[in-house]
Design a protein around this nucleic acid. Structure first.
Lengths: 230, 230
DNA sequence: AGAATTCAATTGTTCAACACTTGACATTGT
DNA sequence: ACAATGTCAAGTGTTGAACAATTGAATTCT
């Protein structure tokens, strides 16, 4: 057991991490209600600790709390997706334009994310691919050199990811986005910021419309299911 | 007792609100340690509830949590101020530029904040003046039409406010900023967005340098005090 | 059927206890 | 003197059990 790292954070934080993981990987799907007693028992912690963990995640936006009605995994609406992509455009594009040559410590990490992305696509591991994709974009925000903005963006990306794992199956063309990311990286490394921003803008537009389309399909599908039930 | 409103939120949330108020008004100064037992006793709640409240506020950035060492009111560094003003420039200026004529529901609220600001200055109520000042700027963000951004900005402004109440006494020229805000409002109402953005940019520069200067003074003052003690 | 009423399940909150960590103080050995 | 070590009290982290409050659904009544 590595105590040096694990015992540095409280149990509540660890529980929050576990649940965050389960939500972000899609193991806990949006809308899933979380009951305190069974969950805390299954993780071997007390109810109070579990409450602190859910408090953390609800403030992060991953869980939604209704008083006396418990918590449930948050569910992204189309409006949420719209809002998040609005944010992405607002923050990622200026980030690229703000990229200076001397801030080169980000580039290796981006290359790393890019390679991980390609490997994941090669392994047909769609969940991991989404992770690396979003990590790549999160790294863009680093060019702003602003910790508060980074942590905020991390949360936003987390919410978006929760929505993306929903539509993992039957997603069209998992590896089709590799060239776009590779091109962005190359333009960035070459200091061609404006062309890079243009590619990024187009990519974000495409990405949003694709996700919106899929979610719309799922929604109408869900609606017809409901109609069938009634 | 007003049950209709109070009983809608949990006790933990109410406690968090009380503490938030105390921090933002400067009643609890930065650096102040908060002990669970006395605090929870004084508010008539249990330790667990108090812990949930401090959890909330630490995730909002108002409290800082050190494991096994308790929580304390966060303390802004000069670097934090720099970072926050970077964010303000990044978000407020594009917000002004994004202000469309049809989004006029924000203007009345801005006028309201403006008038409150002027009244507070007239009453020499510096704390209230800061509130209205920051509320005015928060309203600018509404032009982005993005809930996530608004709530994020609210938190950032909260942190900044915590730093500003620190320097309330002996602040130079409390009412000197009225004309600037009034001018921004007028330009905004007239649809002259670029001039408004220019005024705003200048105002932010001034505001940052003023705050930095005062904080620097307080810091060296505190240091000399410490040196005197040793 | 529809409204009112019980009722069980679940969350919200409290309380008391104990384990663990920390920082300060006291002790020891040199 | 002084540094390393040991002790200790105070405070946080965590637990488990209890009770109050609320909700949603089943049940009863008209």
């Amino acid at each position: 057991m590595e105590r040096a790292q694990i015992h540095r954070v409280s149990v509540a934080d660890q529980v929050a991490s576990v649940l965050r993981q389960r939500i972000l990987t899609g193991e806990l799907r949006p809308g899933t209600p979380l009951q305190e007693v069974p969950l805390s028992a299954s993780l071997g912690v007390s109810r109070n600790t579990m409450r602190e963990a859910t408090r953390i995640l609800s403030l992060e936006g991953l869980l939604k709390r209704s008083i006396h009605r418990g918590v449930a995994v948050s569910q992204l609406s189309l409006k949420d997706v719209q809002e998040i992509y609005h944010l992405r455009r607002m923050l990622e594009i200026p980030a690229v334009l703000a990229a200076k040559a001397n801030q080169s410590d980000v580039l290796p990490e981006m290359q790393n994310a890019l390679e991980g992305y390609e490997r994941a696509v090669g392994d047909c591991d769609w969940g991991r691919a989404v992770s690396f994709d979003l990590q790549f974009h999160s790294l863009l925000i680093r060019f702003h050199r602003n910790r508060r903005l980074e942590s905020f963006y991390q949360r936003v990306i987390g919410e978006l990811r929760m929505g993306m794992v929903l539509v993992d199956r039957g997603h069209d063309d998992p590896g089709g986005l590799i060239p776009v990311h590779r091109k962005m990286y190359q333009l960035l490394a070459a200091g061609k910021l404006k062309p890079c921003a243009a590619v990024l803008a187009q990519h974000l537009d495409d990405s949003e419309s694709r996700l919106s389309r899929v979610m719309n399909g799922q929604m109408s599908q869900r609606n017809t299911q409901l109609e069938t039930l009634t």
